[in-house]
Design a protein around this nucleic acid. Structure first.
Lengths: 350, 350
DNA sequence: CTGTTAGCGCGTTCAG
DNA sequence: CTGAACGCGCTAACAG
């Protein structure tokens, strides 16, 4: 016996099923929520009728009385790039498993939009907020103070200790990378960064410098930060400087940049990894399958998203704000090798 | 004058602002919604107080009375792969611009989950549904009948003409690709497909066969469909067969497969594009920047998402179910070239 | 164990 | 032009 055709605005409510069962609506509510004192007979009867009528409780009405929406608001700069996509996928999965809904909003890194989103979250009475990779403390404060709900940050380090967050331990991961590179014999390094995500960029750049200072104190190190539109273009654009500076090993802020850099290097006659070793950061799906498989630091992106949900729910259940660090793992593939001399031209400064 | 600290469950309502303004709640409602008869003086006064109190209307309460949620439910197999990510990004953008919220749910291609999602959408009383790249008619019917709201499909062709959808015109795009390949002199073709998205795979494979039948009637054509876990692996795994069959040009179902295939080809000593020309489908961000930039068919993925929202809203506003086809554009880069003979071994059948 | 009542925050009558 | 009253669908508190 299936439910009959009904229009969306003619949904069956507990009143309908109460009438059909000859009981009071509140009894239906109790039966459905498996609450306290309820006769087994009436309960099963009610459940059966609900089933037959194709009843689905209105989350809206429920939220109105319970004052909980079971919704987590998520702000991210975009949903379109591969890093976000995985994190967001992890968030959606874990939230779904824990019976929470997710309200995604993209900020496009625009402060005005962030304010709009905060207001929007408030209108929808989200129970908590997850902020992905937005690198301004201000954003955190904005959501924290206007919404007054738990907030968890994903994927960035912030020194202040009272902010809940989950992030990859950049320092350890990058130290592994440097150790690998130094072991290969490299002494002329570059860090290829980004200009529009200052927090995480600085963290990685700093980690890189520190690790080199420790593992190869006399090495040369330069930092390149281009202001192109996309990360791929940032990588492409930094090739010339790397070539002219006689760099033999480059740590990139992420895989996209590495791909751009490698492409430009090959086109300009630089062999990878012969003349230039390149290390990425992220380990995108595609990175292992590139024609020259990319050596990179793997970020557990889905896991970051899932953990963010766990942290947020823990706080909702009365736990403390905690910070969780996951380890990034160096995956050595084929874009790193011992340095070889270049055959023709392109010496440092030439 | 900013709003004072208030807990989430102590939000300001129209009652608070009515009290502060010395008027009736319904007056506040009218002022806020810019409705009919309302004194300019009282209106501005009320607006000012609302502002000062940091008032944000409860979307929940509003939905309860208006019986509209301004929410679009979106089902997609995942949010994590680059194709979905862009489409979903487009949906989110356009919905946001039109003042709609989006409720994303991932089906993981699991029929049980699809049912759960349908029920969940019903609980949340979504106003409409967008189904992305789920290739079973059954899914469409499921959402259509249980929810009784407008449904729009994205990214797949379905012959039945009464289903609203937006998709890329595969036939025209693939015909361009074949024309390009035939013009280059190729006569031994393969289509490298997928097994888990039968609808769109068949559409593209068929388009490929038809185009070849028309443009190079005597050419050889084989179809390879591997059942690996990821698309990249499907590409990798199909290399051997392509090599043995003496194929010189392969059209792949998407870019991921093309990347896998190219990687395997190069490793096995096949030159790309010398011995094997490869055409992808999608034009991922990364495709232009691969060491051998990929020739591919560009799908306007964000645009697909945006258009889906437009279609859905048009129906909500009383318009007819319409179908919208966007054109995919062949982008010729460097993985296609005239066929050259292989130098050593690996002849057909060897 | 079950029925009654009230109220969540808002929009919408219908009177004034 | 504005106030009073009702209902959206559900849960919770209190009776019986």
């Amino acid at each position: 016996m299936n439910e009959p055709d009904r229009r969306k605005d003619d949904q069956v409510s507990i009143y309908d099923i109460a009438r059909a069962a000859g009981v009071n609506p509140s009894t239906v509510s109790r039966a459905l929520n498996n609450r306290d004192r309820i006769g087994t007979a009436t309960r099963t009867k009610i459940l059966r009728i609900a089933e037959d009528l194709g009843y689905q409780p209105s989350a809206i009405a429920r939220s109105l009385t319970t004052r909980r929406t079971n919704t987590i608001g998520v702000v991210a700069p975009s949903l379109g790039d591969p890093y976000m996509a995985k994190v967001v996928d992890g968030i959606e999965q874990q939230a779904g498993d824990r019976d929470y809904r997710v309200l995604f909003s993209t900020s496009r890194r625009d402060p005005d939009r962030e304010l709009t989103i905060a207001n929007n979250f408030q209108r929808h009475r989200v129970d908590a907020v997850i902020i992905v990779a937005t690198h301004f403390r201000r954003t955190y404060r904005l959501f924290e103070t206007t919404l007054n709900v738990p907030v968890v940050l994903v994927g960035q380090e912030d020194p202040s200790s009272d902010i809940a967050l989950v992030a990859v331990d950049d320092r350890a991961a990058i130290r592994d990378s440097v150790s690998h590179l130094v072991g290969l014999g490299h002494r002329r390094f570059a860090f290829v960064g980004v200009d529009d995500r200052p927090f995480s960029n600085d963290a990685r750049a700093r980690a890189f410098r520190e690790a080199i200072g420790e593992l190869a104190p006399n090495a040369m190190i330069t930092e390149i930060t281009r202001s192109e539109v996309t990360d791929l273009e940032r990588g492409t654009a930094s090739c010339l400087e790397i070539r002219d500076a006689g760099i033999t090993a480059a740590q990139c802020y992420n895989d996209m940049i590495a791909v751009g850099l490698i492409g430009a290097a090959l086109r300009s006659g630089l062999d990878v990894p012969g003349h230039l070793s390149v290390v990425g950061y992220d380990d995108l799906d595609i990175s292992a399958y590139l024609p020259i498989p990319l050596t990179t630091v793997r970020q557990p992106r889905e896991e970051l998203g899932r953990t963010a949900v766990d942290l947020v729910l823990a706080i909702l259940e009365g736990g403390p704000r905690s910070r969780s660090f996951m380890t990034g793992q160096l995956v050595v593939r084929e874009t790193t090798a011992p340095p070889k001399n270049r055959k023709n031209g392109a010496q440092p400064g030439t």
